[in-house]
Design a protein around this nucleic acid. Structure first.
Lengths: 154, 154
DNA sequence: TCAACTTAGTTCCTTTTTCAGACTGACGAC
DNA sequence: GTCGTCAGTCTGAAAAAGGAACTAAGTTGA
């Protein structure tokens, strides 16, 4: 498969993978949600090579997930800020954190705890059905081909 | 960063990324949730090289996400089935599919539609707070260092 | 004024991964 | 006995990632 055509596949997972489906990109996004915004800050907290960081940030900007915003005119300096499209990745990141908490933990306990400001409690993210509000399980879901799949098949 | 030490980082996202954070692994998991189980079936639907497929399946088995189960004794043939740990990845996959639907779509419409068997409706997955049931947004969440982070810092 | 520092990258070379495709081995069917 | 199926392994070439030095523009401080 050619990774540059992945985003045109008639599969939303493949398209998401095209945008954020590699190790560094996911770790960069973690930092974004922890309010890291600047090149040097990403580099030193992730120990990613400057080359790759530069490339990945460009890609995230190209996909409209980050915005490159000047914060200083002279010298020209930019920071990288999540767009709404980027903020919408939050459920993905939280789902991954939650799975890691549940299945990849060690005896030391959770690395991070999450507090919901609205209710003031420590919480876990739970995925529910938009229609009935019940917790979702893989076996309770039936998949149908949608219009985008049927057209692609023609 | 050395990818083989990623799973020991005091960060649940990093540990999840260590297990499933690459392009092929995510696509293989998509197939698993679409009930694909056999080597040849993965290979032909993904067009992944046999070498990589073999490697990725081994890794998923090593992490306890898939189980390699014989379905024929002579000749010895195996299929790969999601364990509970693997099934628990469902919210991650669904969150990615949903984001792709919302932000990476084209004029043809959604590739797949999801029906919730319990309520019979087409739905979107929504992430809510386990404590109050409200929809989660990044800005409504405050992060604290947990025991696993504090010990790692010592 | 000049050296040192900061920030955001780019360049160059080496090492590691991935890719494409051929090959293996055990069996079953014809 | 040869063709087909399934689940892989092997190999050499191409692409991606890693490591470290370098650039460029401005700032600070002595």
């Amino acid at each position: 498969m050619k990774w540059d055509t992945l985003e045109e596949e008639p599969c939303s997972l493949a398209r998401t993978v095209a945008a954020i489906g590699d190790r560094w990109t996911l770790l960069i996004l973690r930092e974004c949600f922890l309010r890291v915004r600047r090149f040097e800050a990403f580099q030193s907290s992730l120990q990613i090579t400057r080359h790759l960081l530069s490339e990945r940030l460009k890609k995230l900007v190209r996909f409209g997930i980050l915005r490159r915003v000047p914060y200083s005119e002279a010298p020209k300096r930019y920071e990288y800020i999540l767009t709404q499209k980027g903020l919408d990745l939050y459920p993905i990141i939280m789902a991954m954190v939650h799975w890691g908490d549940a299945h990849m933990g060690d005896e030391r306990g959770r690395p991070l705890l999450h507090e919901h400001k609205s209710c003031g409690k420590l919480f876990d993210p739970v995925m529910v059905c938009s229609e009935c509000g019940e917790v979702l399980h893989a076996k309770q879901v039936h998949v149908h081909a949608g219009p985008g799949r049927r057209e692609a098949a023609e």
